[in-house]
Design a protein around this nucleic acid. Structure first.
Lengths: 196, 196
DNA sequence: AAATTTGACATACGAACTGTATGCCAGATA
DNA sequence: TATCTGGCATACAGTTCGTATGTCAAATTT
């Protein structure tokens, strides 16, 4: 005799967890909803009732992972010495997190293909929001040149995440990762205000 | 009484052209192979004989578009004053080309999701090869800092193409495009060797 | 030049998947 | 206690891809 809402929340969580696994393992297109739901003792009925359709389920999963990433990166960045170092740390963190197959497959590959550009996701992409905030601060205090904050955030994130895809696809990720991080930091330096 | 090879080449070209349209219009997943083939007076028999499977067809289309992009960008870059300006022109060209829905949908969204990271495409991504060459030259002549050429090319391309996705998804692309280009050029400046 | 073979493409079939429409029953409500 | 709501299961319809088989024109051989 569980409460109604409680058991429903449990099922939602079960489905989300199963979807994370299934999407990461087989990719969005090849993930079978029948298999996914039965793996947690439910049927597609529960899925379509809770998430509307397959795309809705992906959207929820992307939202969850994206939030976790933003939280972690933001927290790491806040520990850095100054805000500029924080930005670099954040970027580095994105590169490293994107080596996780779950992040890569779901957020970087299938996410944009199925849901469209991250900037128009329901979650508005927490990752982008987070780095945008930092950028705004850095422009205000004169550390960064006066460029469009949104654009700068997009470029930094795009570069970082793309670098991660490259590292992950390379035959020797361990060797290539430091090169990617180094190049990212050098590149990001372009935004620094010229010292006069 | 056409020659065998000739009529086969015609059919291949017809299918490729139809696939470009269909993939761009509906996306890879939603593009029906029956509809696509019958639109040029053929059946799926011709398709599976020529391209193996649906993925093979996408691969061929991506290859074609990617080559066209690289050719155009490289040609434009070569007209610039010096090699550094050429790199910036190339990057700008990628941003502008990626506003084309065909490029965006097929090469930037569905391509990576279905075929994996561009660096492991059969074509090896002509776009990446092209900018990598320029980067190598610029490092050799001391214009750019000594970073890994592959990494630099990946970061620049990633930033540019990602910026384009952002511009295209924005409500007012015309207004946002110049901001993206400006930010890209500032960012790329990070790779410049420090003037001593 | 006639006969034979090849292979490019069409046709037919099977399996899988998504989304919807309907039914059922535990738990909420009165 | 009786009624009702709604979360979830079940059954069904419509598509789609990939393969296996057939066919006929064009190339090859004799």
């Amino acid at each position: 005799m569980k409460k109604r809402a409680e058991s429903m929340a449990e099922n939602r969580a079960k489905l989300l967890a199963a979807a994370r696994k299934a999407f990461a393992a087989h990719g969005y297109a090849a993930a079978s909803m029948d298999e996914l739901t039965s793996s947690v003792g439910l049927t597609r009925g529960a899925l379509y009732h809770n998430f509307g359709d397959k795309k809705g389920l992906l959207s929820a999963v992307v939202d969850q992972i994206d939030s976790e990433m933003a939280d972690y990166a933001h927290q790491l960045g806040a520990q850095a010495g100054d805000a500029w170092q924080g930005l670099l740390v954040e970027g580095t963190a994105y590169i490293e997190m994107a080596l996780n197959p779950e992040v890569q497959r779901i957020v970087l590959l299938d996410g944009p293909a199925v849901l469209g550009d991250p900037s128009q996701w329901p979650s508005q992409s927490s990752c982008l929001q987070s780095t945008r905030q930092t950028v705004v601060k850095l422009i205000a205090d004169g550390t960064m040149q006066q460029v469009d904050a949104e654009a700068a955030a997009r470029l930094l994130n795009g570069a970082a995440l793309n670098a991660a895809l490259w590292v992950a696809a390379s035959p020797e990720p361990k060797t290539v990762l430091p090169k990617a991080i180094e190049a990212f930091r050098v590149l990001a330096g372009g935004f620094l205000a010229k010292a006069n």
